[in-house]
Design a protein around this nucleic acid. Structure first.
Lengths: 232, 232, 232, 232
DNA sequence: GATGAATGAGGCTTCATTCAT
DNA sequence: GATGAATGAAGCCTCATTCAT
């Protein structure tokens, strides 16, 4: 798992303990970082919230930046787990694509502050540590890309540039967190997802794809309730 | 202008001087904040880069957060100026919409680091000051929304939720800056814009809109070169 | 002067102020370091004793080690000033040599704790900074070496290895400080110097040298009172 | 032995174990202290180098200062053992004196860093513990003093102040370690010792002593090769 | 109006020491 | 007896802010 990358070393040797302590620390850190930002959060606050001493943190982490790194990786990790979990058992490419986006939006919603944190603080990490975060992000992207690719392969999506479109979808999911202060006044998460599907569907579906989409919708296999029929 | 909002008070009375000094300070601050982040940048660094003393800054600004506020407002201000400038003289709703998005992407590209800064640091501002930034953002959004609304009114776009779609377009523009580290390896700005237009066009255009779009394209009135005709 | 070496940089530009502040800081530091040792002394203690704030110290010095460096250099500097001062106007090689050793012993006595500090703490400085101290030490050695060399040149001293003998004499002076806890129970500084002269005289003087030495003694031109006639 | 002095108490009762563990700890500590200094060395480092846990150290020692005390005593102990060992079986007073100085210089050379450590760190010990170190030093001095005294008694040395001259000789030996950074560029240990003998011989020998010295030299009973006959 | 030296609160980090296992 | 995880006091250093000039 990402949080066990050799990049972050601990003084403590007991693997299980390291795992447990780091989870403790990171849980506290993510919450504090998300609410107050990285720089406004002190190690002492993290320690207190985690119920440990400040010195203990440094047995599991080299410095404060490491706590940030682990925190960011844990957020990205949650994406990397939730999306495949949602896809389990599904085979229809279009269904998979919709479910993936839906799942992505919902994790983002559940970890909204943490998602914002990733945007705020990734740049606070220098060099190598930032690369780790970027790589984790690319791993998640790859999940989405694969879905799009499969839809194209199945003739359901137009032959678009997969990676660029991936970023459109990812941006769609992230925007829910980034602009939540405004979006929440405009619609619910369900509505947000539904209109996104509508937007994306029109943007990508082929004629064949549209038929399949309609069928899935009719069968109730599309995750979010569509607020209005997608047509022009 | 935003930088003259009463929220930021100066000890100096000469209006013109205040204006000039603040521009000096903000110019230096934006550059430093953009590259190093807000917390990593010291007042002394800003002073030095602005060619003034650290003490002087406090005659034009209440505290460091004020410098951040002014910096963020200046970034958003540049959006608010560039987009209308690009639209000047244009009347066709679809053309205006495309030009607006294009202009937005290009300002973002020109002020890429500053755009990222806005994402990183807006949350570093507390309460009232953050509202000012949000309002400035909404002002820019309104420019885009108006274009979309006009296209819908003209039957060129489907009757979508204007504000939500606005966020799609805004997200598209911002993503160029936010994910530039990756996007730059995938395509040029022109290509990015072109595929975005393609995506958006499919997502929003009505049959009538498609005809108009094709015509504008044929007349060379669409800002970016379209890599391939938009159809499926 | 050693304390103005470019190796130690200050944030403050006013040369005179830097000089004054550093003297303030170093004076406090030398006293504290000498009594408590480098590691047991805190920057805050130094600041308090110097009558300044702890932050101020860092405007004149990069870190605590720099304070140590300046302190050590100031000690070595005092040797480098006192010895030539004592030699001023003297021309007889043997007299000069005796006066130099005498002066050395007396500075060491005056700055006894500081001399011990140099032995304790030079190794606490890493790389480049330690070199600066070593060079300052060699400069003082050169003063003594020159005296010895002249005596050899004048046929007053046997043709010994000048640098090695220099270290004998330097060690003699330093030992007064290093072993003061014991030596002070055995004799006074005057007696210590006198017996040292006796020892050194026997070790180095040629027949001609012995005659000159006796003459100088008779004329009262040798610094310390000889407790007993030097003969075997 | 010095390390068994009641001043250092252990929680463990098994005498032999205490002895063994302490040797383990001290061996590691001396090496680390000598290279990095006392304050720069952590208990954890000592524990690791000694192959034990950090907690174990505190079962054989009250605190870190105790480790320093034991370390310093062990260094001084090695002098106290090596010198008598070198003298074993020798009866001629002059030969004994020369052998003693030679042996002293060689232990110092072998334990050069440790010797420097003693100079750096004895003052780091407070009150009572420092006395123990001083006493150990005086014990070694007594070995040298006895040799000098015997030479005077045998009419081989001039009637000098024994303790003061002892310090000259001790300083000579220690200086090899203290100024090794410079001396090593000037001569080898053998040469250093040789010139020291030359210096000391001239300083102390009576006419009778000089004859004896020449004889010993001729018989090859003086430890170091004399570079040139000692005369003027 | 402008300067920049001075302040001092506050954060990160280290590490001697303890103690439950 | 031995371990090593946990503690928390303490120190170095930074930097926003002030204010005398």
């Amino acid at each position: 798992m990402a949080t066990q990358l050799p990049a972050v070393k601990s003084q403590v040797t007991d693997e299980a303990l390291v795992e447990r302590r780091r989870n403790q620390i990171v849980a506290a850190a993510v919450e504090l970082f998300a609410h107050q930002g990285y720089y406004r959060t002190t190690i002492l606050e993290i320690a207190r919230k985690a119920g440990v001493s400040s010195g203990l943190i440094y047995q599991y982490v080299a410095d404060k930046e490491d706590v940030l790194l682990l925190s960011l990786l844990s957020v990205l990790d949650s994406y990397l787990k939730e999306i495949p979990a949602a896809l389990a058992g599904l085979t229809d490419p279009l269904e998979r694509c919709c479910v993936a986006v839906n799942a992505y939006c919902r994790v983002v919603d559940q970890r909204r502050e943490a998602t914002v944190l990733a945007y705020r603080s990734t740049k606070s990490l220098p060099g190598e540590r930032r690369e780790l975060v970027k790589n984790a992000e690319l791993e998640t992207n790859a999940l989405v890309s694969a879905c799009i690719q499969d839809c194209i392969g199945a003739g359901l999506f137009r032959p678009v540039n997969v990676e660029l479109v991936t970023y459109q979808l990812v941006a769609f999911a992230h925007t829910w967190a980034l602009k939540h202060w405004r979006l929440k006044t405009l619609c619910s998460l369900d509505e947000y997802i539904a209109q996104g599907f509508d937007f994306i569907a029109h943007a990508l579906l082929t004629a064949k794809g549209r038929r399949r989409y309609a069928k899935l919708q009719a069968e109730g296999r599309l995750p979010a309730p569509s607020p209005e029929p997608a047509e022009d």
